[in-house]
Simulated assay, not measured.
Amino acid sequence: MDAALVDRHDATKADEVFAETYALRVSPLDRGPSGLSGRLQRSHVGSITIDDIVVGVDFRFQRHPSDRILLTRIHSGVVQAAQGDRSPEVFTEGDVAAIGAVSDRPVAGTSCGRAQHYTVVPIDRRVLEAVACSSSGGSQRVELLGQAPVSVEAGRRMANAIDYATALAVTDPSASTDPLVASSLARHLAAVMLTTFPHRALHAPDDHEPMPAPLAKAIEYIEQHVDTDVTITSVAKAVHTSTRSLQLMFRRYRDCTPMQHLRDVRMLRAHADLIAADAASTSVAAVATRWGFGHSGRFAGRYRERFGETPSATLHRSPAAERRTEVGLDSIFV
């Protein structure tokens, strides 16, 4: 782990680091003379930075639209963050947030608590698009739609992925400098983000024709209801169009059917579950069944075609139990 970038008593340095590192303008809510003080401890896995932040004063922050999303795990404290004219979203202990998720909207909010403790991993939007392209086999543009996970379970998966990245940086310095490990980790974080936060992954037609609103809403609906009994009829009804029109729009703009898109999203969710799972208590069959893949052999074949390895290999490579024991608060603080 690298030396601390900010110590507990250097308020001026804290302001500078928050501005340079996160493009955040911060100011204490209390007008007293103490300023913003705390600790920011940085680790690296290749070019990925993983920051452990402790702040002891309540503060407000502002951020202009940025190419980097602040993937944030809240260990303690309360964060309220609003993008543009949207209502503030509130994140508390145990939550994860994608601060600045929506690309074209500024962020404003507050962070409060006597002992605020966060892990922050800045993620370049281009990594998300690279993962989306590799999964679709074509050019895609990813638009995140919100800063909060689509479900509690999705948030847990994201928290496990962040904890694993932290553990790797803290406990295995040799691996953290390996470019292959760093590249793999960046793609894993991006893949889990795409299954955690609401988004649209859009093909880019040559004539730049915009995606029809019903199709965008259908994609969002599928993302948010992927763990339910989704049918083409239920999707069409939700977005107020006919099943025929929906099929034509998916074929033209996504080069697939609505149900093929649903299976694709479920495959990504299964991949994220296997990354986060503990092999001692989870089986490939259980994950496949949960996401609607009743035929284990067919699931394994499609999974290997998509991700380049068997689902069993993914499950046994990064067990969640090992991740949880590798990192704790005592190993984070200096």
Rank of each mutant, 00 (worst) to 15 (best):
S34R: 15
A300W: 00
L180C: 10
V96Y: 02
A161V: 11
S134T: 12
V284K: 14
L36G: 02
C256G: 03
A130R: 13
S37K: 09
S245A: 12
D95E: 03
I99Y: 00
E153L: 11
A4L: 10
A272M: 01
A216C: 14
A313L: 10
P28A: 03
A277E: 06
R73S: 15
A216E: 15
C256P: 02
A190Q: 07
T12M: 11
R63Y: 04
Q80W: 15
E153Y: 13
D30A: 06
E209M: 13
G84H: 07
V327S: 04
S27Y: 08
H199M: 09
R60I: 11
M1K: 10
A97C: 02
P106S: 07
R114L: 11
A279S: 15
F299I: 10
S34A: 13
D58F: 08
L315V: 00
P122H: 00
Y164A: 09
P205D: 08
D124W: 01
G137T: 08
A82P: 06
V131N: 09
H208E: 15
A115R: 15
R42N: 01
S242W: 02
A98G: 02
V107Y: 07
Y253S: 01
L215S: 11
R324K: 09
P212Y: 07
Q62M: 11
R8L: 10
F293M: 11
L194G: 05
P122R: 00
H75M: 14
Q247K: 13
F59W: 15
V235D: 08
T231A: 05
S151W: 03
G38E: 00
T243F: 04
G301P: 05
S234I: 08
T257F: 03
K237F: 15
A14P: 00
V230Y: 05
H188I: 15
R63C: 00
R60H: 14
R290D: 13
H271P: 06
Q41N: 04
T314F: 06
V284R: 14
V142T: 15
E16F: 09
I99P: 01
L168P: 07
R25Q: 12
S296F: 09
L246M: 02
Q62W: 10
